[in-house]
Design a protein around this nucleic acid. Structure first.
Lengths: 187, 187
DNA sequence: CACCCATTTGAATAATCACTCAAAAAACTA
DNA sequence: TAGTTTTTTGAGTGATTATTCAAATGGGTG
């Protein structure tokens, strides 16, 4: 076998599922073995160790999320409408079964102690999301207003990511978002 | 020894410190042994098991937080001013070394999978905080407005709890809060 | 076809985990 | 002070953890 037999993307996909749902510490490599079907040796040969596999999963997740945000904001007629779409999506995501917030947010909260590298990575990626929002806002607002509103948006997104665990909270969150972000073109 | 030799409150206090900082899964009972100075047998004899000790720690934390919120809101000249004080405190807390968000929020995010009892408890306590805020708001606003603003406040608090890990973010968050909560009497 | 080497295998390893228990010790009671 | 009950002690348990490795496997290449 000169080339690996498994599909690397599929393995990362399954790992994201597990790590996102359970977090770093509650996920065991045995569970990774079970979900991916690979043997322990293969996983370690291909990915190094648990932290490296987790990191690759986080990277993949962050890449896809950033691409998605870009796509929506580029497709929207105005920045404001794009932001409304994003927020509405985040709200609706919380209504799904097995909702588990945002992989980056969860990692930031779980691994903050001791300056963990995975924490640093998740934090850097979240900062990048804010920078992305700010850059789009600058198309319509001054630098000062854009920065303030980007931070406000981030806090609302984080808010929904935590609030969303509550059952039957979708309408409440919609109201709350309209209250806190009245400058957006809500429908 | 008919009565325990250690101070139960002190042990819970040390446990809160550990569990709050590291979370449930990254905290080992050996670390509890080290921090409290008790022997394993004593801990299990007095508290049952890890989950029960964690729960007692969570309960103690939640009780103290709720009392603190009540105290501030009762002492403030107006509800709005009390809310500003609370938010400013949460922001300033994030600037401390070893900042670790909110024990309840961290527990909610870490243990949501599989309907864990500790997750349910943390969630219920967070819901109670919102109910508390809403009851104070009703003194000055209609039921509808109070509910909407209580949710908005909760989302902002959650937002700060997650955003606060970012370094040098205090001024940013202050700006963001004023942007999202313009109806509060900010100074 | 034969060789090579990347990859797979799965049992094994050592560390750590939550938790237990029988015996010792230390209060309270009479 | 003698006896009873509660609490402490700390070595020990079995399960689970992340990780390793020598041997087997099989695709690519000449």
């Amino acid at each position: 076998m000169a080339r690996a037999q498994f599909d690397r993307n599929e393995v990362i996909e399954k790992s994201i599922e597990l790590f996102w749902q359970k977090g770093f510490n509650a996920s065991s490599m045995e569970q990774v073995v079970k979900r991916t079907g690979l043997k322990p040796g293969s996983i370690y040969y291909s990915f190094g160790n648990k932290e490296a596999l987790f990191r690759e999963s986080l990277e993949s997740y962050a890449r896809k999320r950033a691409a998605h945000l870009h796509k929506i904001l580029d497709a929207a007629p105005t920045v404001g409408e794009g932001l409304c779409t994003i927020l509405e999506e985040v709200v609706e995501e919380s209504a799904k079964e097995n909702y588990c917030s945002c992989f980056l947010v969860k990692t930031r909260l779980e691994l903050a102690a001791e300056g963990n590298e995975l924490y640093k990575y998740a934090s850097a990626k979240l900062d990048e999301v804010e920078a992305l929002l700010e850059s789009y806002l600058k198309k319509e607002y001054s630098k000062k207003v854009s920065q303030r509103r980007a931070t406000s948006l981030m806090m609302h997104i984080f808010g929904v990511r935590v609030y969303g665990y509550r059952e039957g909270c979708v309408e409440r969150m919609r109201q709350g978002l309209r209250e806190g972000l009245p400058w957006l073109p809500w429908k």
